[in-house]
Nucleic acid binder design. Structure first.
Length: 211
DNA sequence: GAGTAGATCCTCT
DNA sequence: GAGGATCTACTCA
């Protein structure tokens, strides 16, 4: 595939106060990693917003500031990567300004470049829609690990770009979030955004209904 | 197609 | 020492 000219999203994109709007805007953008000279890129097709200290599903809920969550309390435009269930890495984008620990979780991608590297990392032999479906698979395929937390998203190894791809509002579905049932009523908030009918969107069919 | 169990380790209490 | 922003494979229908 021809290398397209990717335009990095400016830092001003990340420091906006409305994390839900950012989560929607990230749909259709390109996540690029270039670790160890292995260039990989995928179009973001699913995101989730985590609204800081008032959001029970967020690690930063109730101003819970620890070594792990410290990065979320800084300025937006940085990566936040952590291990979940002992085996899955989650890639988040920190948004808003310092002391507003908002984050957007990237849950699914549509692979564009470096598919051979992704297959190699995930131990798969051929491309199918499970390659980058679900946040654990996204990080695995893109080579993102815990050591990549706190990376400035204007660096050359890890960034999000715009290639001019536009999606209309009618193609975006808002649904409730996944895997955060412990957050009680806030698990029902429509903070998950997906591109309608995209094969790479995670979850079951019934979870992809607009709310 | 739908539901369930198991893997596995970092982080916080 | 317990539990978690998950995924997969397996079972049963």
């Amino acid at each position: 595939m021809q290398m397209k000219q990717f335009q990095k999203l400016p830092n001003s994109f990340y420091i906006q106060p409305n994390v839900v709007a950012i989560a929607q805007d990230l749909l259709g953008k390109i996540l690029v990693t270039n670790f160890e000279n292995q260039l990989c890129a995928g179009r973001i097709v699913e995101t989730e917003a985590y609204e800081g200290i008032t959001d029970k599903a967020s690690h930063a809920y109730n101003n819970r500031r620890t070594e792990r969550t410290e990065i979320m309390f800084g300025n937006g435009g940085y990566s936040y990567v952590y291990l979940c269930y002992g085996m899955h890495y989650m890639f988040n984008v920190v948004t808003n300004v310092a002391n507003h620990p908002h984050a957007v979780l990237v849950r699914a991608l549509e692979p564009l470049q470096g598919i051979d590297y992704m297959l190699n990392r995930t131990g798969k032999s051929k491309l199918d829609y499970t390659l980058t479906k679900g946040p654990g698979n996204v990080a695995k395929a893109m080579g993102i690990q815990k050591k990549h937390t706190g990376i400035y998203l204007q660096s050359k190894d890890l960034f999000i770009a715009n290639d001019g791809f536009e999606i209309s509002k009618s193609e975006i579905l808002a649904t409730k979030r996944i895997g955060v049932d412990y957050a009680q009523e806030q698990a029902l908030l429509p903070y998950r955004f997906i591109i309608k009918d995209n094969l790479y969107v995670s979850g079951k069919k019934s979870q992809n209904i607009a709310v």
